[in-house]
C-alpha cells in the first residue's frame, strides 16, 4: 500500500531538504532514468519533463502530514521547500526499501541548480536521439533558456558521473 508515496518520502529523506518544485520534479525524473523504480509518468512540458502524478502525490504527502511544504517569499517570486516530518520517518519505517546507491545520486543531483537539472532532464528525455540531434533540440526548444556550450558539456559530464 502506498509504496510509490513511500519512495518519494525516501528521496526527500536522503536529500534532507529539496528547495523548489521544479527541482523535485527533475530529481525524480533523473532517478527514474537511472532505472530506480519510480512509477510516476512524465510528459514533456515547457520547462522540461514534468509529472502531474508526482505533483499530486506530493500534495497527498503534505495533506497526510508526512512531508512539510514551506512557501518562502523571494522578493518577486515564491519558492517551496520540502522536508520529511517525524510522521513521515515513522511511515517510512513500515517499508523495507534498500536504496543505497540512490543516496549518493540524490545528493549529487540535489546540489545542482534547477536550471541545470532542467537541461539534464531535457537531454535525458531525448535519449533516443544522437548527441548532435539532442543538442540541436535543446537549442531550438530551450531557446529562451539560452544554454551555453559549457553548460551542455557540463550536463553530459554530470550524466556520465551519475551513470546515465
Amino acid at each position: 500500500m502506498l509504496e510509490d508515496h513511500a519512495k518519494v518520502i525516501a528521496v526527500l529523506k536522503e536529500a534532507g531538504e529539496v528547495i523548489g518544485r521544479k527541482k523535485l520534479q527533475k530529481i525524480i525524473y533523473i532517478c527514474k532514468k537511472l532505472q530506480f523504480p519510480f512509477n510516476e509518468k512524465y510528459q514533456f512540458h515547457f520547462y522540461g519533463p514534468y509529472s502531474e502524478e508526482l505533483t499530486l502525490r506530493v500534495e497527498e504527502l503534505c495533506n497526510l502530514g508526512l512531508v512539510t511544504e514551506v512557501k518562502e517569499s523571494k522578493g518577486g517570486y515564491y519558492q517551496y521547500k520540502y522536508t520529511v516530518t517525524e510522521e513521515g520517518n515513522e511511515f517510512l519505517g513500515h517499508y523495507d526499501f534498500q536504496l543505497p546507491e540512490l543516496r549518493q545520486c540524490i545528493n549529487e543531483i540535489n546540489s545542482q541548480s534547477s536550471r541545470f537539472l532542467e537541461l539534464v532532464s531535457t537531454i535525458l528525455f531525448f535519449d533516443r536521439l544522437t548527441k548532435e540531434e539532442v543538442i540541436e533540440k535543446v537549442r531550438t526548444i530551450k531557446r529562451k533558456q539560452n544554454y551555453s556550450d559549457d553548460e551542455i558539456d557540463q550536463a553530459y559530464a554530470f550524466m556520465k558521473k551519475l551513470g546515465c
Binding site: 523548489g20 518544485r21 521544479k22 520534479q25 512540458h45 515547457f46 520547462y47 514534468y50 505533483t55 517570486y77 515564491y78 519558492q79 517551496y80 534547477s114 532542467e118
Partner: peptide, 8 residues
C-alpha cells in the same frame, strides 16, 4: 498557477 516554473 505555474509557480517556480513548474508549468506554464
Amino acid at each position: 498557477p505555474g509557480e517556480e516554473e513548474e508549468r506554464l
